[in-house]
Design a protein around this nucleic acid. Structure first.
Lengths: 226, 226
DNA sequence: CGGCGATTTGAATTACATCAATCTAGGTGG
DNA sequence: CCACCTAGATTGATGTAATTCAAATCGCCG
């Protein structure tokens, strides 16, 4: 868990990163490791033509280490965030002092890669509705929210689209569908309630989203005046 | 370059891996690092439903380190391959002895991640033809082959499809189109010649593949009796 | 109370997947 | 050495999910 505490304990200077500010750019030399304390950071690659692809969203507790010498992606704050910064020299020192701890620290940053690997799997084969259902479930779970608890999503639909490999319009449409199906409720701009339920599970398993076919009329969702 | 030689020098026992054999499975504990000497290895994730997604192809010189404690993907030999194996304990030792070398070694394995990051970008936005054009160009370049030089592709179309996020039929069709356009020539089963040229570049930049529109009649390809 | 980016909604298009045969290469055994 | 066999590759026909383009609306900020 906090074998990484050691290295970040030294760098006791929380950095406040305003919304949209870049932590580092792709191809820049790696000067430090970061650990997120508050907020949300996105790892992304930018194409020449201006297109942007979000590889991962990082949350408090996550360690950012996109390369040891050169960053393989850039990092930007999705919303105002707080990070701790540890110079790479500290990592090299830790390697000598306590290699196991250093390995654990690196493993923590590998979690991001692991997530990325599985994310690719999702992009390959899941439908738009399944991807978004998964995403909402993830966000809800992260916030410790069950079906009825409200949670906040810090990123805008554009971010979600660039993360899930969809057009922004598609994201909007699927949101509307999920809401119509009674699974999603929009409390306010970026506050939701999501009841993944069996329906969502089936969705993620490949079923198409439709309440038009009479067979199974949108059960297990929210009732209109819930 | 060969800062990694140190760690692999100790493990002087080349391992011959037959075609299709698994080096390690996802979620298995990490016992060793590998360096490929000959052949080709694929990193992949397998979904519950049997679907397979290839995250990367690794070639001689590449270091495999998919996680430090638990593998985030499994590895299988695409064709008969030779690898060197260094126990993780050797890496921990190296950290103490020569942290910079250890970092360099890990950086080498991060190259795979970097490639993966950009691969995601391609999956997001490139057309089937563009992906395959890129893939062929990559393979040709890897073999040091220019337009007329022949190169071998060790993987079958199924592998290519699972790597590029396409159906095998689509791969076959695009191959046929590229051949008809005079850019690709199939010398034998898995030996090709590929002239990426301006056409391929435009393709990768988003242009659709067609020789039917009279405007630009498949120039710069191979002539029939070339 | 305007201004503007972010969303929503609609209609039309299309690239790719899917399903279903057929064909081929090359390894196998007689 | 040749006919057989099978996984892999090819080809065709069809369907559709998601993109694209375009326009209206919303929500927030100054």
């Amino acid at each position: 868990m906090s074998s990484d505490a050691a290295i970040f304990a030294g760098a006791r200077r929380p950095i406040v990163v305003p919304r949209g500010r870049q932590l580092f750019a792709e191809d820049d030399p790696v000067l430090a490791l970061y650990r997120i304390e508050r907020g949300c950071v996105r790892l992304q690659v930018n194409e020449r033509n201006g297109a942007r692809h979000i590889l991962a969203f990082l949350f408090p507790g996550d360690v950012i280490c996109a390369g040891l010498q050169k960053h393989w992606a850039s990092a930007e704050a999705v919303c105002e965030s707080v990070v701790l910064k540890a110079p790479t020299s500290a990592l090299l020192q830790l390697m000598q002092t306590d290699p196991a701890a250093a390995a654990a620290l690196l493993e923590a940053s590998e979690r991001t890669v692991s997530q990325l690997a599985h994310h690719v799997g999702r992009l390959f084969q899941d439908s738009a509705a399944a991807r978004i259902s998964w995403f909402l479930g993830w966000m809800a779970e992260r916030a410790g929210a069950d079906g009825v608890a409200e949670f906040e999503v810090p990123m805008d639909q554009r971010d979600i689209a660039d993360f899930l490999g969809l057009a922004p319009e598609t994201v909007s449409r699927v949101f509307a569908q999920l809401e119509a199906a009674g699974l999603l409720r929009r409390v306010s701009y970026r506050h939701f309630t999501y009841r993944r339920g069996a329906h969502g599970a089936r969705l993620e398993a490949g079923e198409t989203l439709s309440c038009r076919d009479g067979s199974r009329p949108c059960d297990e969702g929210f009732k209109p005046g819930d």
